[in-house]
């Protein structure tokens, strides 16, 4: 006992040290939010890890009922989605309808299509009764699709871009150099732009849009991007290969353009040719 007391007396500064540090740490945890939070969270961490283990085990027990709930919810949402889709389909407001009033658009659905023949045609589910007439432009989500060729009462036949009869006046976006887009067979993703003057500035990756010179399409509708540029044999023009932006293998909804002044323009141009 005496030894112990002697020991304590001899090393009393240890007690003072520990006492003072204890006071400091109490102050620290009491008044410093950070240290306090670290202290208490590390104490809580043990408890938390126990809870986590139990809950990860117990969560398996009610998987079946959770699954059923999810399935119910899924079905409910699908029904809702179908309802909304029909409503959306009836609402025709899209960017196409924001074009100048000179143009009028009609919605149509593709009911027949081909891409692997020499002359490809697309059949639409709208015809003369719906206001569609020959020589109207047709565009899809990706860009230009073709030109209406023949109409019956409720159906119309469209000359696809992938058709030797089709020739669409196009230009490079940002300049006014133009040429005629034709499809020469083969790859359904690539068409050729002829008669582009060889002083025009065309580079790979440039966007090709409709020129608006023909009465069929308004100016600036996307057609594709330049894939390659080569000199033509005539020494005056380029042959520009164009990657078509429309995926002709996958078109369903299209818009048909009616140019309200197209007839006027065509008649005017015809009188000159007649003379």
């Amino acid at each position: 006992m005496r030894n112990l007391i002697n020991f304590l007396i001899k090393y009393n500064y240890w007690l003072v040290f520990l006492g003072l540090e204890l006071i400091c740490f109490v102050l620290m945890f009491r008044f410093n939010r950070y240290q306090g939070s670290v202290f208490f969270t590390s104490v809580n961490e043990l408890a938390a890890s126990v809870y986590e283990t139990t809950s990860s085990v117990s969560s398996y027990f009610n998987l079946r009922s959770e699954n059923e709930k999810l399935m119910d919810r899924n079905i409910q949402l699908q029904a809702e989605l179908a309802g909304l889709k029909t409503i959306v389909a009836e609402l025709g407001k899209d960017t196409v309808s924001l074009l100048p009033s000179q143009y009028q658009t009609f919605k149509a659905r593709v009911i027949n299509n081909s891409i692997n023949k020499d002359d490809n045609y697309i059949t639409l589910d709208k015809g003369a009764e719906d206001g569609i007439a020959p020589d109207m432009g047709v565009i899809g989500a990706g860009g230009v699709v073709g030109i209406v060729y023949l109409v019956s009462e409720n159906r119309s036949l469209v000359v696809s871009v992938l058709n030797s009869k089709a020739s669409i006046s196009c230009k490079v976006r940002g300049s006014n150099y133009f040429g005629n887009l034709k499809w020469t067979g083969g790859d359904s993703k690539v068409a050729t732009l002829f008669d582009m003057p060889n002083h025009a500035e065309v580079a790979e990756g440039d966007t090709i849009v409709t020129s608006g010179f023909s009465s069929v399409f308004p100016e600036g509708l996307p057609v594709g991007t330049v894939k390659s540029v080569a000199n033509n044999n005539d020494g005056l023009s380029y042959i520009v290969k164009v990657d078509l932006s429309t995926d002709f293998g996958n078109i369903s909804d299209v818009r048909v353009f009616r140019n309200n002044m197209g007839e006027e323009q065509t008649n005017l141009e015809e009188t000159v040719k007649g003379k």
Binding site: Y13, F17, L20, E21, I23, C24, V26, L27, F29, F31
Partner: peptide, 13 residues
């Protein structure tokens, strides 16, 4: 509170 006090007590120790 406590942080500097604890460090300086330690140093004195």
């Amino acid at each position: 509170p406590g942080i500097n006090a604890a460090s300086s007590v330690f140093l004195a120790f």
